[in-house]
Amino acid sequence: MAKASAAGPLKNQGKFKYTLHMMRVNAGCYGMMAPFLILFTIFTIVPVIMSLPMGFTNFNMVQLPKFIGLSNFTTLFLNDDVFMIAVKNTLVMAIFTGPIGYVLSFFLAWLINEMHPVLKTIFTFVFYAPSMTPSVYVIWQLLFSGDTYGYFNAILMDLGILNAPIQWLTDTGYIFVVVLIVQMWISMGAGFLALRAGFQNIDKSMYEAGAIEGIKNRWQELFSITIPSMGPQLLFAAVLQISAAFTVGVVGQSLVGLPSTDYVAHTIMNHATDYGTIRYEMGYSCAICFVLFAAMLLVNKFINWLLAKYLD
C-alpha cells in the first residue's frame, strides 16, 4: 500500500534489488503472515503437492518408500475395477450434490430473498442447520434402520406398502439412494449462505430500472439482472460446491460401512481411505488422492471459464 511509494527511486536499480528492498520494508507483513503460512503449508500445501511424488512409490508406513514409476497410476486406471466403480459413483453423486445441489441452493436463496425478514431468518436456519450437525449419520442411521423400529420401515409397513422391513443400509438396491439423500441433505451448507448473501448485495435500483425498461416477470428479472450481478458470489459458491461434490463419501462411510456391500456406494474418497488406512498401501492411496485433486482443479478451471464467459 502506501509504503510501496517510498521505494520509488530504487526501482531503477534492478528488479532483484527492488524486490529485496520491498521485502525488507514489508518485513512486518511477513511476520503477520507467518503463523498462517507455516500451518497452511504443512497441512494443506505439502499434502496436496506430496500426493504426486508419493503416488510414484510403494509405501507401507513401515519400510521406506520405494520408487515404482507409473505403476500405481497404470494399475489404478487399467486394472482396478473397484476404482472404476468408485469413479462412476463419485460422478453420479457429484452431479447430484454439485450442479443439482448448486442450482437448488441458488433457487432456494432466490425464493427466500423475496420473503418477509422473519420468514427469511427461519428458512435460512432450516436449510443451514443440517450442515452444522456433527451427528448427522447417527440420526439417519436410525431413520433408515433395517428393522421395524427404523422410521421409514415402520411408516411404510404401517401404510401397507411393505410387508417386511427393507435393509436400507445393506441391500445393494437401496444403499446408493440412501447415501445420495443424506449427501444432498448435508451439502446445502456454506454455498447456500454465500448465495443468499449475494442476493442481498444486489443494488435495488437495478430492479427499478429493469421494471422501467419493461421486464415483465421474475424469470426475466432473474436472468437479465440478478445472475449477471452476482458473478463473484456464484463463483465462491461454485468452489465450495465442487469441493463438497468431489469428496463425497465421508458420510456414506459411517452410514453404510467401508466398503459398502458390493461397493455400490464406494466413492473415490472411500477408495483412498480404504487403501490408506486399512490396507496401508500409502503410495497407492496417494495416487488416488492426486487424481482426485487434479480432477477438482480441472473442474474448477472449467467452471471459472464457464462463468466468466457467461458473466462478461
Binding site: T44, P47, V48, M50, F236, G276
Partner: peptide, 25 residues
C-alpha cells in the same frame, strides 16, 4: 499467496486427511 488461497478453498480437510496423516506421522 492470494491466488493460492483462492485455489485452496477447493481442498477441504475431507480430501486432505490421508495426506495429512502421512505428514503428521
Amino acid at each position: 499467496i492470494n491466488k493460492i488461497i483462492v485455489t485452496a478453498l477447493l481442498f477441504t480437510s475431507n480430501a486432505l486427511w490421508i495426506m495429512q496423516f502421512l505428514v503428521m506421522a
